[in-house]
């Protein structure tokens, strides 16, 4: 019996799909059997981020409506063993699926996989209710911005009221240079405000755009700082204690980035 994890945020554009793709791939690299599920019906994107868009035959709505079996709709990743994608439907509405159907689907997937990772659409409406149905744990992604943090706080309240208490915070797109100048909230500030268990801090990394362009999750790139952060999160999900990258003073990560010729600003 596996574990189902939803990746959610409330606000759009904070990196839910990137986080889902990277943590899914990261856990598969650790030898786990992983299924990533795109619950963003109508706005399918997890497939392109993972570079699997040309292999889609069936999708999640086909499965729920009984046109095919789950196994037929699953797409095997082209690089990593034990990693599968269940794509969203692109030409349907969010209400093509209901939370009850999602709960059944997730529990079926949990029988076959160690981890089922659900990419949640932005918002708190129907698509969100579908994405959180039947999950055991939530990763809440927020950037260090007022709007993202506010939305994350609402998500915490809603998840709490629906009985999902196992919630962890992923701080995404943090910029050490701005933190040092006092122009961006740091890890402690975010902890103060949201009072969530922190599971990862991902630096803002141009490499993410490059990896998305190519359809190769950053965890596969040993030199990517964001990829390193996602590998660390994957290990923490597996219960391994990994120290957090030192971002508040920026020195370590920036030295690291400069060493690789990635960042080198200032």
């Amino acid at each position: 019996m596996g574990k189902a994890i939803v990746v959610t945020s409330g606000k759009g554009g904070v990196g839910k799909t990137t986080t889902t793709a990277n943590i899914g791939t990261g856990l598969a690299l650790l030898g786990k059997k992983v299924c990533v599920v795109d619950a963003d019906i109508g706005l399918r994107n997890l497939d392109v981020v993972m570079g699997l868009e040309n292999r889609i035959v069936y999708n999640i709505v086909d499965v729920v409506e009984g046109y095919c079996r789950v196994k037929q709709a699953l797409i095997k990743d082209k690089r990593v063993d034990n990693l599968f994608l269940l794509p969203a439907a692109q030409t349907r509405q969010k209400d093509a699926v209901n939370p009850e159907q999602m709960r059944d689907l997730i529990s079926e997937l949990k029988n076959d996989f160690d981890y089922v990772i659900v990419d949640c659409p932005a918002g708190i409406e129907h698509g969100f209710q579908n994405a959180i149905a039947g999950v055991d744990m939530a990763l809440i992604v927020s950037t260090p911005e007022v709007s993202a943090v506010r939305d994350a706080d609402r998500i915490v309240g809603i998840l709490d009221s629906q009985g999902i208490y196992d919630m962890f915070l992923v701080i995404n797109k943090i910029r050490p240079d701005m933190v040092r100048k006092g122009d961006m909230m740091d890890i402690d500030d975010m902890n103060d405000i949201l009072a969530l268990n922190l599971i990862g801090v991902v630096p803002d990394d141009e490499g993410i755009i490059v990896s998305t362009n190519k359809g190769e999750p950053a965890v596969l790139d040993k030199r990517s700082p964001a990829g390193q952060a996602f590998r660390n999160i994957s290990k923490r999900i597996e219960g391994v204690e990994v120290p957090f990258m030192n971002i508040s003073d920026g020195t370590m990560i920036e030295r690291f980035m400069r060493m690789l010729g990635v960042g080198g600003k200032r």
Partner: peptide
């Protein structure tokens, strides 16, 4: 600093959000 402004504004708005939620 703008981060302190962000924190202060969030603190206020979240008190209200949480009460309404």
């Amino acid at each position: 600093s703008s981060k302190n402004m962000a924190k202060e504004r969030l603190r206020l708005v979240l008190v209200q959000d949480r009460a309404m939620l």
